[in-house]
Design a binder for these strands. Structure first.
Lengths: 215, 215
DNA sequence: TGTACATCAGTGAACGCGCGTTCACTGATGTAC
DNA sequence: TGTACATCAGTGAACGCGCGTTCACTGATGTAC
């Protein structure tokens, strides 16, 4: 991964970004548990200690990677929706947009399993397994979710579903694509032959589209 | 967790089962990454080496825990379905059964987060992160999935959905409850207030029931 | 323009940790004669 | 019934590993006068 932005040149140049990029690479290769502070430093050619000038510790590095991964996921969804041909019927177009967003979502998960898992990892305080920390900063809005919710509202406005979409409809759609992604990635759908995988994906998308319409 | 079955008494008595129970306890407390061979041995009061008389290594221990956790999940679903009052209308009863199974699924995940995560963990060869091992024994049938699929077939037979249910409908339903569970457990739904959580669960179940009917 | 100084971003060695696994072993149990 | 022996389920010490993190430090950069 290329550096995100050029910063002022001190000793290294832009160590914080370089570390983030290395960490994102690590997540791409092996998911969140592969994001190891020492290894990121090693790849950048810097001592592990140097990372502490820029991050509170592994936890903060991993949360930064997570934010980045969520961003890439949303980008993939938007690209998929952008490639979708419109339709004369605006209701049909809205329905297609929803399906395309979902397909983009699942496609990203399948193409980038490590990043996808990193996007939804729950970093424990210091890598130690245990209960979640209370009183952490509130969860930032996840754009992937916003995209789904807005697409559902778009559908609702066009009258193919009830005029007022249930507020949790987006969450329901998200649940379906998230579960599908993980079952494909590391769950029991992992070894399904390509054709069956495809059927599972398309059936799930059909369930989402028609199931949220009925809400 | 109590011992599963009494075995012949050699030195320890039934070390294999004792280790499994300790490992299941560990998973209950902290999920799959908490299942540590040395700690299980410690709890049973035995040297780590002793475990190697009964397991190939940590991998096999963890897979055993996973099987156990999947079993408990299916039990919870069946119990939830058993508690559901029947209905005069058999179609309504079948629909309620499906919803009850799903509720049981999500309920188990929320009540037993560690076990639930263990039920769907993907043990890497030796705990080392990396690519999945190829050519492992085929995935055993997951009873939770069978329950969902059969419930959907039950619905189909009663004519509230198309006569022939799409074969992947069960997978779609599973995706929804799996994703919902994980988003509630360790994802962005984690901190939702109780009322919103409930709305999300019920909306997702409604999507599953009506969405699979339309398939 | 030159110099003294503060600041800042890095280094290198070390700490403590706990893991999975292997080795050569021991002591109890069961068994053949 | 007694004894020699094989088997089996455990022990204890050690290996190598890599992690996150802290410590006292150094050397480069920027700055006030």
């Amino acid at each position: 991964m290329a550096a995100i932005s050029g910063g002022k040149n001190y000793h290294h140049g832009d160590l914080r970004n370089a570390l983030i990029c290395a960490a994102v690479d690590l997540a791409t290769e092996g998911g969140p548990e592969r994001v190891v502070l020492r290894e990121a430093a090693r790849r950048v050619g810097v001592s592990p200690t140097a990372a502490y000038r820029h991050f509170d510790g592994r936890g903060e590095l991993l949360r930064t990677v997570r934010t980045h991964a969520r961003c890439l996921l949303a980008d993939a969804m938007e690209q998929a929706a952008g490639r979708e041909p419109g339709a004369d019927d605006p209701a049909l177009a809205a329905e297609r947009r929803l399906a395309a967003l979902c397909r983009g979502y699942v496609g990203f998960a399948v193409d980038q399993p490590g990043l996808y898992r990193a996007a939804f990892c729950a970093p424990r305080p210091d890598g130690t397994p245990g209960p979640m920390p209370e009183g952490r900063a509130p969860e930032p809005e996840v754009r992937a979710f916003t995209l789904l919710r807005d697409a559902l509202e778009g559908l609702a406005r066009l009258g193919t579903s009830r005029p007022v979409v249930r507020p949790a409809a987006g969450a329901a759609a998200w649940s379906a694509v998230h579960g599908l992604s993980l079952l494909l990635l590391e769950g029991p759908f992992r070894r399904l032959p390509a054709q069956r995988r495809n059927a599972v994906v398309e059936t799930t998308l059909a369930m989402v589209v028609s199931g949220t319409r009925a809400l």
